[in-house]
Design a protein around this nucleic acid. Structure first.
Length: 179
DNA sequence: CCCTGATTCGC
DNA sequence: GCGAATCAGG
């Protein structure tokens, strides 16, 4: 099958009327796939129509770890205003502030979502909901949410398609699917 | 699973 | 240039 003028015209019409690529492909008859339609539409320079992929929240943060970070930082943001002194308190007599007793036998606290800041690594350790779920907590690579070590895990360039799946993907111990 | 469009790249 | 395979999302 080839792209005759008539076929191209049908494609143009359908595309402009907002028909989906598969509907157009069906209209064009056997031998023309949905991919063929999309490929040709692009080569013809037809305007991109709302893609389910680009149209949605394409800007949304992707990646499991980053989702957690987004959720937790949101949680922190929700908590902080409560913690902050209300503006009305400014005129109030200075409250008696007791000296806070320094924590003597502070347990080696795991870094919780309350400890998250831009300066610490937010790589999750364990799974949310588990009792000892916490975050890495080491100093973060400036400008990144994670420490150097975890940046190496979080940001990995994709191989060209032809080079993928030459070997089964390596799985970090402890980072596989939940059992 | 079904679907959507977008992109890549061997042919 | 073509379009299957793949990607990324609904």
């Amino acid at each position: 099958m080839s792209w005759t003028d008539a076929r191209i015209e049908m494609l143009r019409n359908g595309w402009e009327q907002g028909l989906t690529a598969s509907q157009i492909a069906e209209q064009l008859g056997e031998g023309i796939s949905r991919n063929a339609v999309i490929g040709k539409a692009h080569r013809l320079g037809l305007k991109a129509r709302p893609s389910p992929v680009k149209g949605g929240d394409a800007a949304a943060i992707e990646g499991g770890a980053e989702r957690i970070v987004a959720a937790t930082t949101a949680a922190v943001a929700a908590i902080e205003p409560v913690t902050a002194a209300p503006a009305a308190a400014v005129r109030a007599p200075a409250p008696v502030v007791r000296k806070v007793r320094p924590a003597v036998a502070a347990k080696p606290a795991k870094t919780s979502l309350l400890d998250l800041s831009e300066k610490i690594c937010k790589w999750p350790i364990g799974h949310p909901g588990e009792t000892d779920f916490h975050f890495c907590g080491k100093p973060s690579n400036t400008g990144f949410p994670y420490c150097n070590e975890h940046c190496l895990l979080a940001y990995q360039a994709q191989l060209p398609r032809r080079d993928r799946n030459r070997a089964p993907p390596p799985v970090m111990p402890g980072f596989g699917p939940r059992r």
